[in-house]
Design a protein around this nucleic acid. Structure first.
Lengths: 134, 134
DNA sequence: GTTCCAGTTTACGTTAACGTAATCTATGCT
DNA sequence: AGCATAGATTACGTTAACGTAAACTGGAAC
């Protein structure tokens, strides 16, 4: 049933799509973030691998290290474990949650300052271009 | 007038207050982010230096490099220059603005996922502690 | 005086996240 | 067969942001 939803990708396809180098992708694998299959020697990426790459890049954008990203993957995968494991999971998530909230506040502050500065600049520039003597 | 608003700080006072090492503070100076005065050999930090340290740490929290932070300081200081300079300024700010907006979106996504995961975990844990046979 | 103590300088070490060759392999095309 | 092309492996190089250690200084306290 549901024929051929099992699309696969080459390394350079993924590299192109997400604008990263093949080197980076192989590096992520060596760090345990991706686990592509092999056809002989060549890596062959599933849709799952593709999603993991997306998540990896998103994690990076918000300032997670590759290690942390991998830990989250592992926890996510094995989160039907025992209770202490779950506690640890919740703990990590809570901490990160607080960091991110702080980070958002910082960013909002900076965005406001940036807005003001830009307004200032444009104000200055208008003045100058308006007040030129012949 | 306005007597003694000119408070100064030692390096370890600042280190304590902001929870960074003295090494880091000296390093920021070597990178041109701080310019404390000297009493003989010792560094003596003004309120201005203190503000700059705050801004530096805030910049770091939102993922700016020390170089970028210094550039912003320099631009901020000398932003009454000529028009090309102002244009460059606005340009940098705009780019950073876009990055930060993107970053905020990412963070909000992750925060939602974290919320869901935590709810799941707590749900599981309730179930277990509730359904124990004697 | 000497012993702390905070501070300074100098310099080498470290981690993360790849970049950059160099060399080798497999395969499809002509 | 010969060549181009994409991919693989191995290994050394690089940058940022400090850490860490060693050795020195200058005043304060005993």
């Amino acid at each position: 049933m549901t024929a051929a939803a099992d699309r696969t990708f080459s390394i350079s396809e993924l590299a192109q799509e997400f604008d990263v180098t093949t080197r980076a992708i192989r590096f992520y694998e060596s760090e345990g973030l991706l686990t592509p299959e092999r056809q002989g020697q060549r890596r062959i990426y599933s849709r799952r691998d593709r999603v993991r790459l997306m998540l990896t890049l998103r994690g990076k954008r918000i300032g997670l290290s590759l290690q942390e990203i991998r830990e989250l993957f592992e926890l996510y995968d094995a989160a039907n474990n025992d209770e202490p494991q779950l506690m640890k999971f919740v703990d990590i998530l809570t901490r990160r949650e607080q960091q991110l909230t702080q980070q958002m506040q910082d960013i909002q502050l900076v965005l406001r300052e940036i807005g003001q500065l830009k307004a200032q600049c444009e104000h200055w520039m208008e003045k100058r271009s308006g007040g030129l003597p012949d």
